[in-house]
Amino acid sequence: MPELHPWSRYVAVGDSFTEGIGDPDPGAVGGHRGWADRVAEVLGSSTPDFAYANLAIRGRLLQGIIDEQAEAALELRPDLITVSAGGNDIIRPGTDPDEVASRLDGLVGTLSRDGATVVLFTGPDIGATPVLGRLRGKVAIYNENVHAIALRHDAVVADMWALRQLADSRMWAPDRLHFSPLGHHTIARMVLATLNVDNDLEERTLPAAAPRHWREARRDDVSWAREYLVPWVLRRVRHQSSGDGLGPKRPEAVSVIANER
């Protein structure tokens, strides 16, 4: 049984990462589970009347999160807020990580104004990821800004860059943009450790990956580009988002049901 912790109302804001995309679960609210649901389930297991809302929507850019989720989150009177935002901005061509971070700073200032514990995320090290790997420097600059923002606002940093397990391709969904169920599980454990919350989520060690011939890897890259990269680029060109027309999966702070675990 996890130990007691000081939080009773948790609100998660962000994009597809926090919504739980890549971790499909027909038994979960919205059809996706994800790291935030896992964290809420652990926190709720030791605290009576614990409530959880998840306002994240896939595809949201930072400004959309500011405009749509910040005040809505505060209206739920949380004492714990997680915010992962800016990743969709950073991977777009021509964006300035310092400018994106300056808007994140304002968002964190808003979310922390009522005294809630705010948890920020660094981006993962994507150096080994095809195509996106070339953005590694932008992610690193943004991450340094995240640490500085956390210092200014007395926030907590959940450091995905330091989570070296995420370098394993099995931590990622087939689209290579979202995390797999194993990746979400691993991130949930890291978030709980960052909050110094004991938990019963098991560490899952992976056997060594079987070596692959370069021709097989090349075929996989071509297949991935056709199935996932091209549609993603087309949505950007058409100014479309995978989250168009969607609302948050948990707009109200409600109890976390034990059998969701």
Rank of each mutant, 00 (worst) to 15 (best):
T129E: 07
L107C: 08
G115M: 09
H147M: 08
F121I: 08
S112H: 12
F121Y: 08
V131W: 05
I126D: 07
V157M: 00
D125S: 06
D154H: 14
V118C: 09
R113D: 13
G109A: 15
A148R: 15
T122N: 11
R136N: 15
D114P: 01
D114N: 15
E144Y: 02
L135R: 02
P130I: 04
G137H: 11
A155L: 01
H147N: 08
Y142E: 04
V108L: 03
E144A: 14
P124G: 06
V146P: 00
V108M: 04
V146F: 03
H153V: 00
L107D: 05
A116E: 06
L135W: 10
H147D: 08
V156L: 15
Y142G: 02
H153G: 00
I149C: 01
G133C: 11
V146N: 00
G115A: 07
L151V: 11
V157P: 00
E144P: 00
V157R: 02
V119S: 14
S112F: 03
A116R: 04
I141Y: 04
Y142H: 14
V146A: 01
Y142Q: 09
L107A: 07
V108F: 03
L111V: 10
G115P: 09
G109T: 05
A148D: 12
H153W: 02
P124M: 13
A140F: 03
V146E: 00
A128M: 08
R113V: 07
V119R: 10
H153E: 01
T110R: 14
N143T: 08
D154W: 03
I141P: 02
L132K: 07
A128F: 07
G133M: 09
I141M: 13
R134C: 10
L111M: 09
N143I: 07
L135S: 13
L107Q: 08
V118E: 07
D154F: 04
L135V: 13
A148K: 10
L132I: 13
L120H: 09
G109F: 10
T110I: 12
P130G: 10
A158W: 01
L151H: 13
P124W: 05
G115V: 09
G123F: 13
A128D: 14
R134Q: 11
V131F: 13
D114F: 02
G123R: 12
V157E: 03
G109I: 09
R152I: 03
G109S: 11
G123S: 13
D125T: 10
A155D: 03
A155T: 01
D154Y: 03
A116F: 04
G106D: 15
V139Y: 12
